[in-house]
């Protein structure tokens, strides 16, 4: 059976597409990233772009309509709306990102452990996720907000408590299906330990899907932050925040509708940008 034939199936060269080219071929990812990048750049460079201070009041120039001086006009205290809008983006987006870090990590970790080990470990983790899901998210936020006092802390605490669940559920399902695949079986045949398989083999495979979920979850979190601000139990004034801006503008809705509409639009804009990035990433990874 000795043979030195080179079989045609052994030629390994194929067309190779670069990551950049693939990103350029995914319009939703490109559009979403550009939209989000514009917002981030504005938020980072707003001190240099705007001559105004977001909290500085100018009662002689209140409720002005958009003009060359004030691009989006001023609010009831004479503060420049555009400046406040972008500073609010700083506040809200920072909280959004920071509040996701711990839940993202714990969710992925618990999901992998539940999916890989199965049996009682899975039962316990599933029981916890199901219990938390039974409570409406906003109920928990409001309880925690009252318990810990209004402000950012309530959001962080609530999200550490319940934010991991969505990741845990998705990752658990993925891990359980990967566990049945043969590359996990061969890693086990090699004798690799459970933790090692989870970290080295499972993690890189569940991460892409988890990031896609992260994008949609951040949209939900942003809406929650804004809602709490609007209800007055989120970020406290004078820190600029889209939710309080919407609430403040509400009294002037018939004369200066843009006061509420503009921050509302900002929420929608961010939501669309993140959703497009999420969709685009999912497309990108699927195409491969």
């Amino acid at each position: 059976m000795k043979t030195t034939t080179i079989y045609p199936e052994l030629q390994t060269d194929g067309p190779k597409t670069t990551l950049l080219r693939r990103i350029l071929n995914t319009p939703s990812l490109l559009a979403g990233s550009i939209m989000f990048a514009v917002l981030i750049l504005l938020a980072v460079f707003i001190p240099y772009l705007s001559p105004y201070d977001p909290t500085e009041q100018n009662l002689s120039a209140f409720l002005q309509p958009p003009s060359a001086e004030h691009w989006l006009g001023t609010d009831q205290l004479g503060r420049d709306l555009f400046t406040r809008l972008i500073y609010a983006a700083r506040t809200d987006l920072t909280i959004m990102v920071l509040a996701e870090i711990i839940p993202f990590c714990t969710g992925i970790f618990l999901g992998m452990v539940a999916g890989y080990y199965g049996k009682w470990v899975d039962n316990v983790i599933t029981l916890i996720t199901d219990t938390f899901i039974a409570f409406p998210f906003y109920l928990i936020v409001i309880i925690v907000a009252f318990a810990s006092g209004a402000g950012q802390r309530g959001i962080y605490i609530t999200f550490i408590l319940v934010g991991w669940i969505v990741f845990a559920r998705v990752v658990r399902g993925l891990s359980a299906s990967f566990r049945e695949q043969e590359w996990i079986a061969s890693a086990r045949t090699l004798g690799l330990s459970g933790p090692r398989i989870i970290l080295r083999h499972l993690l890189p495979n569940v991460l892409p899907q988890a990031v896609v979920v992260l994008m949609t979850d951040m949209v939900g979190l942003l809406v929650a932050i804004v809602t709490l601000g609007y209800l007055g139990i989120g970020i406290a004034p004078p820190t600029p925040d889209w939710g309080t801006m919407i609430a403040d503008g509400q009294s002037f809705i018939s004369t200066a509708w843009w006061l509420s509409a503009v921050p509302g639009f900002a929420v929608v804009y961010t939501g669309i940008a993140l959703s497009l990035v999420g969709d685009g990433l999912a497309d990108l990874w699927r195409k491969k």
Partner: peptide
Amino acid sequence: QRKKIQMIFQNPDASLNPKHSIRQILAEA
């Protein structure tokens, strides 16, 4: 004992970790 028994599987689409390069796959073992 683990080392002494190795196995190859049916489905070539699923028998290698899709996120690992061949270098990583061989080096790990």
